[in-house]
Nucleic acid binder design. Structure first.
Lengths: 235, 235
DNA sequence: CGGATTCTTGACGAGAATCAAGAGTTGTGG
DNA sequence: CCACAACTCTTGATTCTCGTCAAGAATCCG
């Protein structure tokens, strides 16, 4: 409805990698940016809520988000992390009058580019590749969810934890003096690995004793990923 | 798998319900049928294999299929059942040069309608709604997989089993004199509910003793679904 | 009838959730 | 600068679920 007119075109964060945008031509990307609103996001802010009407397509510019579903007893069923360049709110385009499938919450300070319903409709006709890009993204999510499914069905909690560490390191780790640093609290790891807080603490302690990693408050440091990869040569 | 060459246009099985075809216009459905091959399928036949090049889009006409993934240790990670009207091999259209994401195996005698790569390309230009239908199907699969994920993360095996019974009854149950009949062996139920054969047998026995269901070889009869729905008011 | 499936039941043990208690960190305000 | 509160993490004891193994019963089929 209300696209704010801007004197300057919204800019992409420098160095942004996005498989979503890569599916579009440079010209289409420019058209997209012209219709975009840039919005700041803060931790714990809910960016979309499952079941609510899907009215906004958006792209994470900077920061980090968590994608999950709510169970009826109020717990979060973790599905995946979202990193810069990931596109969300795809239901807005895929299924005409639609509702969001999942809830997404910011976990870090950051920013997004957003297009409302009217903008999306305009974009579809002006960007022929857009619908293809959306489909690709949906099918990527499907694939990664199938992978998650495999991890979640691993027999032991230890195997799941190892896998979650490796995946999280890949998605949101950054290198530090002692190795790859992953800024996650035990509670968040437990959520992602689908196990209790205590089981996480126990195994991390064990691995710390054997020198595979170091733990700090809210942070895990992995000198090397290789030991964990070999723990689970599965699915 | 033997191919029937036909002088006449391939016909849809009578009474087929397909949300996939419903997304197309009657004219488009006719175009589709003209380009289709009808193929018989038999139990244990592998209809597509994960990782193999996606060269065929197909629609289940009659029978039943199992969609799963293989783990590295050779086990099957069950994802869903496929019923008449469901479309598969969508990767053939969604992602240009693609590979199948999942393995699909027939579990009952039946038939499919199939389109090879060349036919798909021809169809895309002649059926504008086709790509929308494919997207919708993919996004449906995503949604149902998220649901599966929720079921699979339910704490107890009992809860999972109850949910699987209800879902299976909905997908492949047919009504009989004593209630809804579901033709599944304990082994298949165990696969779908992600638990051991023995746990399935134990809980089914218990429910049979309390009169919630009756068991026969290869078949479960549910007089009513309601008790199971209330066991798990979750996800 | 004999053999192959399919299902049942019991005993056992490994793994993980829960509960409880406390230790270690971080941040805040006096 | 210290004291206190809030948060995060650790560890042990306990309980329970479920997978495994073993044995055998029921059903189906030629």
């Amino acid at each position: 409805m209300r696209i704010k007119k801007r004197a300057v075109v919204v800019a992409l964060p420098p160095g942004l990698k996005s498989t979503f945008l890569d599916a579009l031509t440079p010209r289409e990307v420019r058209v997209l940016l012209k219709g975009a609103r840039s919005v700041r996001i803060s931790p714990h802010e809910v960016l979309q809520q499952e079941g609510a009407p899907a009215r906004r397509l958006w792209l994470l510019g900077t920061g980090r988000v968590a994608v999950y579903r709510l169970t009826r007893d109020g717990n979060k069923l973790f599905l995946r992390w979202g990193a810069p360049g990931d596109a969300f709110g795809l239901a807005t385009i895929v299924r005409a009058p639609a509702r969001y499938l999942v809830t997404i919450e910011a976990v870090q300070e950051g920013s997004i580019l957003a297009w409302d319903l009217a903008a999306c409709e305009a974009l579809i006709s002006r960007c022929p590749s857009l619908s293809k890009a959306v489909n690709r993204a949906v099918s990527k999510y499907l694939e990664s969810l199938i992978d998650m499914f495999g991890v979640c069905r691993l027999r032991t909690a230890e195997d799941r934890l190892a896998r979650v560490l490796v995946e999280s390191a890949g998605q949101l780790g950054h290198s530090g003096p002692e190795g790859i640093e992953v800024d996650l609290k035990n509670e968040e790891v437990a959520l992602a690995a689908h196990m209790s807080l205590f089981t996480v603490a126990r195994h991390l302690s064990k691995w710390q004793r054997t020198g595979l990693l170091k733990k700090y408050r809210g942070k895990i440091v992995l000198p090397s990923l290789s030991p964990f990869g070999t723990i689970t040569p599965d699915t």
